[in-house]
Write a protein that binds this DNA or RNA. Structure first.
Length: 488
RNA sequence: GCCCCCAUCGUCCAGCGGCCUAGGACGCCGGCCUUUCACGCCGGUAACACGGGUUCGAAUCCCGUUGGGGGUGCCA
């Protein structure tokens, strides 16, 4: 196919929605797949939405996701002149007309006429002239049908009789979305319109407008299935966790997010789901996109994100996790929640951040976390100057109910005092040796690792102990062992 | 109310008339590994909404029913 020209045209609402991100991604995939161009157009017909902060709220997440564009951002608000020209033409040719009726007046007329509520072309022949409070409405055909050819849904026919004479210019003179859309897509040479299915019903109206404007063949359309919540309703800001930024803050990787998003409504023919975007671009086929709505499943996103984290090298993990280690406490519960609870999370609050600890422990950490935000909870105790707190449940289970905890701590402390802590393997054999020796003495299994772990980290679950112990060093290790012993 | 879309495991995706006693992934369950937690590996659970057609043959095509969703604004 000839190089397509597509556009991502979000309304500035203060943040980027995961559904919008998916739309942007599919436009991008289509453009990249076919060697076309992608434009970014901010649909800010409503002047109140036209602030730098709102624009940044769209651009920043796109950049984060790695979705780039070839032209723009354009602003619908800067195209008022072109919209006015189109408006003039439509009125001059009789395709549109002025209307001065208010909402209540329209309702009253419908009620009076015994018709269902709605605009029934009341001002078509009233010969209203332009002025304050006057809008322009498009005269829709009363008969026939308008058909939309959709790459995903095939041909869809809309009876014109179901169309109201819709407003194309507000009383303040600005063009509405329908008109601006028709004009801008035409002027920008858009060849393919890829957007959410919620916009399918607007398409016949835009096509009617295009025809009245003499624009010729409409672009090809592809209406993507909606992203829905667990109740299968369109994702909404109020009910659902849809702000892309929220996922970013928790430590989801952009490449994991785009990979997951690409899987909603589409799947690679070979069924390999987790793969580099370059491969997805190669395999992507807009006509193979599903027709039915897809549930945005946070658990599957977790799986994909975890898979990407596992694939990170030690250096990569260390680098990428850094912002999540030192971020100040927001007052919310720490995103670095430790699985066993009782953990603090952000290292910045308990000690000093040490990238070397991360680099060494990365292979063990990356197989245990779902998000980057969780990393701190696994290593904070190693970077802490003093032990933070003991998880009460862990203490009870290991130190109180566990067999011979006091003896273990005493014996381990004694044997470790002479060690120089240079070898994780030796630390392991010393601690484990205590367990075996005490097991023989008690003629029952004595676990030595658990009490040591609780004494050092405050928790009974965590990374394999030996390397962290080495990193913790002798003074802090012995100090914590004695502190725990004293607490028994 | 009217218009439009949709309908395969709980979820996402595969299937585009015979290869389907329906495949992969997430989740869940069980096992192996293991002196923590995980990872990994092995196994299991689970679906073609319903009713009519068309056809030698239908998850796949057609019609209807039901169900779900979207739209119906001087929002986009």
């Amino acid at each position: 196919m000839a190089a397509p020209r597509v556009r991502f045209a979000p309304a500035p609402t203060g943040y980027l929605h995961v559904g919008s991100a998916r739309t942007a991604l599919f436009n991008w995939l289509f453009a990249r797949r076919h060697g076309g161009q992608m434009m970014l157009r901010i649909e800010d017909t409503d002047a109140s939405l036209r602030t730098q902060a709102y624009v940044d709220a769209i651009i920043e997440p796109l950049v984060w996701l790695g979705i780039d564009w070839d032209e723009g951002p354009y602003f619908q608000s800067e195209r008022a002149e072109q919209h006015a020209v189109a408006l003039e033409h439509l009125v001059a040719t009789g395709a549109a007309y002025f209307c001065d009726l208010t909402g209540p007046q329209i309702e009253a007329r419908a009620a009076e006429a015994g018709l269902p509520p709605g605009y029934h072309g009341w001002s078509r022949d009233r010969d209203v002239s332009d002025g304050a409070g006057v809008v322009v409405r498009f005269r829709c055909p009363d008969t026939g049908a308008t058909t939309v050819d959709d790459m995903i849904r095939g041909r869809v026919a809309f009876p014109n009789s179901a169309l109201e004479d819709f407003v194309i210019r507000r009383s303040d003179g600005s063009a509405t979305f329908l008109l601006a859309n028709a004009v801008d897509d035409h002027d920008m040479g858009i060849s393919h319109v890829i957007r959410g299915e919620d916009l399918l019903d607007t398409t016949p109206r835009v096509q009617l407008l295009r025809a009245a404007l003499g624009y010729g063949e409409p672009p090809a359309y592809a209406h993507l299935p909606l992203l829905v919540n667990e109740k299968r309703q369109k994702l909404s800001k109020r009910r659902d966790d849809v702000a892309l930024g929220h996922y970013r803050t928790q430590g989801y990787l952009p490449e994991a997010m785009t990979n997951y998003l690409a899987l909603l409504g589409w799947g690679p023919p070979d069924e390999v789901e987790i793969r580099p975007m370059a491969e997805i671009v190669e395999l992507f086929d807009i006509e193979a996109v599903n027709r039915s709505a897809a549930f945005f499943d946070p658990r599957k996103l977790d799986h994909v994100n975890a898979a990407y984290i596992k694939a990170l090298t030690a250096d990569e993990l260390t680098e990428r996790v850094e912002p999540f280690m030192k971020e100040p406490d927001t007052g919310e519960s720490p995103s670095g929640e430790h699985p066993a609870g009782g953990r603090v999370g952000r290292v910045g609050r308990v000690g000093s951040y040490d990238p070397e600890v991360l680099r060494v422990l990365a292979p063990e950490i990356r197989q245990r976390v779902t998000t980057l935000g969780e990393v701190a909870g696994w290593v904070d105790w190693i970077m802490a100057d003093a032990i933070i707190s003991y998880d009460p449940k862990a203490w009870q289970k290991v130190m109180v109910k566990g067999r011979a905890a006091a003896e273990v701590l005493d014996e381990v402390t004694a044997r470790l005092s002479a060690d120089d802590f240079s070898s994780a393997e030796r630390l392991e054999s010393i601690v484990m040796g205590v367990g075996y020796d005490l097991s023989a003495r008690h003629k029952a299994r004595v676990l030595s690792q658990a009490p040591v772990r609780v004494a050092l980290s405050g928790s009974n679950v965590g990374l394999p102990l030996w390397e962290p112990m080495r990193l913790l060093g002798r003074p802090r290790t012995l100090e914590r062992l004695r502190a725990a012993r004293a607490r028994l």
